[in-house]
């Protein structure tokens, strides 16, 4: 094979997408690589969800300019069972995103990850240790508690 032919074939390969890139599939599957990947997945998912909620929230509050009736009609939407469930999801997502975000601020600044050392078999990476992971558990627990409290307030009407 001449080098020109080889170069042409490599170009053809690129055209036929032989790059083997995972793309979005790379982060859509959270279950293969451990809890940090689950955290990564939740952080992104809740971030997107809260962005969508924020846009909806701006739209909801903007109904005020159309008068009290329009505002009351908009509020009616949140008084249904579906509306309550949506708000509970918002409470859970915002709590998880905030607490896990605070954990990530610390870890991404190199805090609480441990020091480099001499690795011994079986290798146990210090950056994904239980000390660091405890922040993730706290985020999940707080999100669950906040959702339960929210559900209690919304459904009992207290």
């Amino acid at each position: 094979m001449t080098s020109a032919t080889s170069a042409k074939r490599i170009d053809d390969n690129n055209k036929n997408d032989r790059t083997n890139r995972e793309g979005l599939r790379g982060w859509l599957n959270p279950l293969t690589y451990g809890w940090e990947r689950v955290s990564y997945w939740f952080q992104r998912l809740t971030g997107i969800f809260l962005l969508v909620y924020f846009i909806g929230h701006v739209y909801e509050t903007s109904s005020l300019v159309s008068g009290p009736d329009a505002w009351a009609a908009m509020l009616e939407l949140t008084q249904t069972v579906g509306g309550h469930l949506f708000l509970i999801l918002v409470i859970g997502a915002s709590t998880l995103h905030t607490v896990n975000g605070i954990r990530l601020i610390f870890t991404q600044s190199g805090q609480g990850l441990g020091k480099p050392g001499r690795p011994d078999y079986p290798y146990d990476p210090t950056s994904v240790n239980n000390k660091q992971r405890s922040g993730l558990w706290i985020a999940f627990i707080l999100a669950a508690v906040a959702m339960l409290y929210g559900a209690n307030v919304l459904f009992s009407g207290e």
Binding site: W27, G34, Y40, T107, P125
Partner: peptide
């Protein structure tokens, strides 16, 4: 974004 997957799959404990 600290998904930690790199450290989980490293066969030499590089972290």
């Amino acid at each position: 974004h600290f998904a930690g997957s790199c450290s989980n799959v490293c066969p030499k404990g590089v972290d």
